[in-house]
Design a binder for these strands. Structure first.
Lengths: 182, 182
DNA sequence: CAACCATACGGAGACCGTCTCCGGTTAGCA
DNA sequence: TGCTAACCGGAGACGGTCTCCGTATGGTTG
């Protein structure tokens, strides 16, 4: 990649992160281009689809997912506490930007999605939590990772779109936890 | 209302129902106007916001909600069966059009929304089911109607956006049911 | 039945976002 | 220094939302 191309690429990602933080994942891409000081053509050449840009923004995010799982697993407490701790981390991670929960949850299991690797990071981290619960015999039969991600993702999506606060979200996660644990 | 206005109003609603069925709630409103043989101005005068049009389309829908609740309540079986039967009805009702689950679920509890009365019909029907379960002592403490609607709505939203089939949705509803029942 | 006017129509067009095409520019190399 | 492949970026096509305003018409009144 040529030096100027790399420069533009980095600048676009940086600016997009800022714009998406302010306006959510539906923000205008032309606005991103403008703020980055490049033409729309340049932006679309580097990132043909919006998802490609989101993917680029999320590069460092994968590490945070793993760290969050570590943190939840380190926490001592009942299986329910562990699960709830992870659910909260999960929701927080996918709700970083408005529109995120819907984008990420609907891309789950779609390997052709540009953000597929990001979804895999989430399912992998959730698996780690689930394995611990499994080992403790705290899990109901027939519960699998993808289901859990969809359930929690669904809660996060509703919370995101209806602008719910933590107080409204917590009980919902509680129900999901109860439905999944013995 | 003048006769020609009424004629146009009815025609727009009729056409919109058709277009939304084909293309979901995000369909172009200009297209609706065109197919209805009216100008965009006419459409927007009758329905200033997309939700107003959706609301008009859903006029008869409220009856179906009540009927669906009747049907679920008539069904004999365990509390879990009853709840699952209602959940499935619920999902089906709000998933009639693509984009519906998200629209309806995020309008829940927002009295200023044009489709507020429709949401109320849903919560009312859900209440009836919940009261029955309550009377049977099958419900956990601290579960309220809105939470349930959000949970099921969340599942429906994910299913809608990720194009999930019934086979994928059913287990999710099962988890919610287990989380809500004793 | 004619005249009037409040009401409603509808299309031109402003505005915004997406995305492409292509003439011009430039980095990197020989 | 000069060449060329790679890259830039802006003009503009396209499609959607929504408004404004000149025009048409339904309904009423004398």
């Amino acid at each position: 990649m040529r030096a100027d191309a790399q420069r533009n690429y980095d600048r676009i990602v940086e600016v997009a992160r800022e714009v998406f933080r302010e306006q959510g994942y539906d923000a205008s891409l032309d606005e991103v281009a403008k703020r980055a000081g490049v033409g729309p053509g340049t932006l679309y050449r580097h990132f043909p689809k919006r998802e490609n840009l989101i993917d680029a923004i999320m590069q460092s995010w994968v590490d945070r997912v793993d760290e969050a799982a570590d943190k939840a697993l380190a926490h001592e407490g009942s299986p329910r506490d562990l699960l709830l701790a992870w659910f909260e981390q999960y929701v927080a991670l996918i709700s970083l930007h408005k529109g995120g929960p819907a984008k990420i949850t609907s891309a789950m299991c779609d390997d052709s999605s540009p953000i597929a690797t990001k979804c895999q990071a989430l399912t992998r981290a959730t698996s780690r939590v689930l394995e611990r619960l499994e080992a403790e015999g705290a899990l109901r039969e027939g519960v699998d990772v993808v289901q859990m991600c969809r359930l929690v993702g669904g809660v996060a999506t509703v919370a995101d779109q209806a602008d719910l606060g933590t107080d409204d979200v917590q009980p919902l996660l509680g129900v999901v936890a109860d439905g999944v644990l013995r």
